[in-house]
Nucleic acid binder design. Structure first.
Lengths: 174, 174
DNA sequence: TAAGATTGATCAGTCAATCTTG
DNA sequence: CAAGATTGACTGATCAATCTTA
């Protein structure tokens, strides 16, 4: 396909079969991948591993505290906020979700008495979500349990170098 | 909380404020985390970075080939299968989704003429999804474009050591 | 007009119920 | 009865439309 025989366009570029040292291949029973082996291994492992990890953490959080990961994040932001209170738009920006999603998460938390909506005095368009005492208590419990899970199911298995590298890899360019 | 002063229960264990070298803290504007700093950085970076990456890849795939990541995986398994044909239960196991989800993914692909359902001759309970010629062509195009995206937005930015480490970290214990 | 919030439609996924066949 | 597939109801997320107010 390419005229220049050894112009490697990128370190992970596959070479569609006409290059002796990399070629299409099959990984385990998982289907074929057209990447050099270590790259394909890394990518597939990341996808599968991350998914398994998140599903596991979500299940535990749901079972023990009846919260989604996103709801836990919202509670966490409120717990850390001045007067345990924050506008919905701010919360949405905090947790990286759409405003509409956050509005419905707050619906759910409000129904359980964990937060209360109140009009923002500075701006009549805005709504504050305020964490109740019950919400604060649950936020602390659930957060502690969740971080424990994160450690046990993931962080504790990593070396210091691996931890640093993860922050590096996913913090920098991605 | 703990009687033994220096019995570190786990490398990433937080020490809820009574240990001088680790304590609760706030990362950027992202809220508080009760983990030693490098662990919290790694975990938050992984969550955010992975999410951004996936959203980006999904958007490109949707825009260029009108496929979800899961649909692309299904097409890939069919392309790699004998006679470009595979039972729905097998596909579900391949891609790690529920059978019902796979059934509806196949609905969508079938509507577009990319796959066809046909009864399995060996077992009248089972249904095979068979990739059509159009489906094979799209599978190749979309797969190539997707892997290109994966390289450009992620793999190309990694060192060889980082690549190996990712496979290691997510392949082993998680 | 634009920003904050809510609501409705839709998508991707799960689980539970059902139907058919081994 | 158990396994393969489908369908319905639900969750978590998005976007587009709407309503109110700066």
């Amino acid at each position: 396909m390419s005229a220049a025989p050894k112009a490697r366009r990128s370190p992970a570029a596959s070479t569609s079969g006409d290059d002796p040292d990399t070629c299409p291949f099959v990984i385990g029973e998982r289907g074929l991948a057209e990447l050099p082996a270590p790259y394909a291994v890394a990518w597939l492992a990341l996808q599968r591993g991350h998914r398994r990890l998140i599903l596991q953490l979500e299940a535990a959080l749901e079972q023990r505290h009846a919260l989604s990961l996103s709801a836990l994040e919202v509670l966490g932001r409120l717990a850390a906020a001045d007067a345990r209170m924050r506008r919905l738009t701010e919360l949405a920006a905090d947790v990286g979700l759409s405003l509409s999603r956050v509005s419905r998460i707050v619906d759910g938390l409000e129904r359980r008495g964990l937060v209360e909506r109140e009009p923002c005095p500075d701006d009549a368009r805005a709504t504050n979500a305020r964490l109740t005492d019950a919400g604060l208590a649950l936020a602390h419990d659930a957060r502690a349990a969740h971080l424990e899970d994160v450690r046990h199911s993931f962080l504790d298995h990593l070396s210091v170098a691996q931890v640093r590298m993860l922050g590096d890899v996913f913090g920098r360019h991605v």
